[in-house]
Design a protein around this nucleic acid. Structure first.
Lengths: 135, 135
DNA sequence: TTATGTGTATTAGTTTAATAGTACACCGCA
DNA sequence: TGCGGTGTACTATTAAACTAATACACATAA
């Protein structure tokens, strides 16, 4: 049985950190929380966060300065976006199309609901503008 | 840390069986392979398939006849479709929209690619028509 | 220099899904 | 009746991820 890799905790944490980097919670070049800090934040063992950071370092999204901590790579945001874009078209979109087909859902319905989604989003954005447009 | 439930093997098998039921590999009212048979097919321990079948029985997609085996419920296909439809609009679509937004992908691009998807699909279907339209 | 906070490394323990193997009761059929 | 195929139940084991705790070298600042 070929089983789909289930997302382990350390990868879920890595995903979360990527989200935060995209949201400019941790801007490019700046330091992210220490392993122990982040472990406390997400209520997880430090060793688990170690794996998350090692993983993100391998992807060159963050890098390490000995004795100081981990920092967001200058092009970290770009790397994340490119990786996710690739993943989206390769993995997620085919699954999505398959769902549309077997459930017999019309694309116009999706289009319509996405318009509503954008509308709500813009409403929220007026109150909470993205931090990198404020700077 | 609130972790997303990763799909365990027995649930992946249940999903696979649902796919097969939708594809009329196991038509409504008919028998599905025995636990030991299916375990051998997917190369997995029998206990794992036991859990899959128990799960699908709880969802009233299959039912049991003592000493005989498991059978597809008369409205099994309908149940699967309804469940997946609900799951799609509740879980998958919001995630999909979020991806579209953060990756700045236009819906027209999706629409275009889906048209191609349907085109390929129809090509395949001419060679492999769905079994329930043959009957 | 010393103290404190970094990451790193190591060892041991816990948890849970999946595996392995066995035994048993029910059903249909010969 | 008995045989072979069902599901069911149970115990024990394995494997992998996560947890727990500790020790240590490096960097900064008091």
């Amino acid at each position: 049985m070929i089983l789909s890799e289930n997302l382990s905790i350390y990868l879920q944490i890595a995903e979360r950190i990527c989200d935060e980097i995209l949201d400019n919670v941790y801007p490019p070049g700046e330091r992210i929380p220490s392993i122990r800090e982040y472990a406390a934040m997400v209520e997880v063992n430090a060793n688990t966060v170690v794996r998350s950071y090692e993983w993100l370092q391998r992807l060159e999204i963050i890098y390490n300065k000995r004795g100081l901590g981990y920092f967001v790579a200058p092009d970290g945001k770009h790397r994340i976006r490119e990786m996710r874009r690739e993943q989206f078209f390769r993995d997620e979109l085919p699954k999505f199309f398959s769902r549309l087909y077997t459930l017999d859902i019309d694309v116009s319905e999706i289009e319509k609901q996405y318009a509503e989604y954008l509308k709500k989003k813009s409403g929220v954005l007026e109150l909470n503008p993205p931090t990198d447009t404020i700077v």
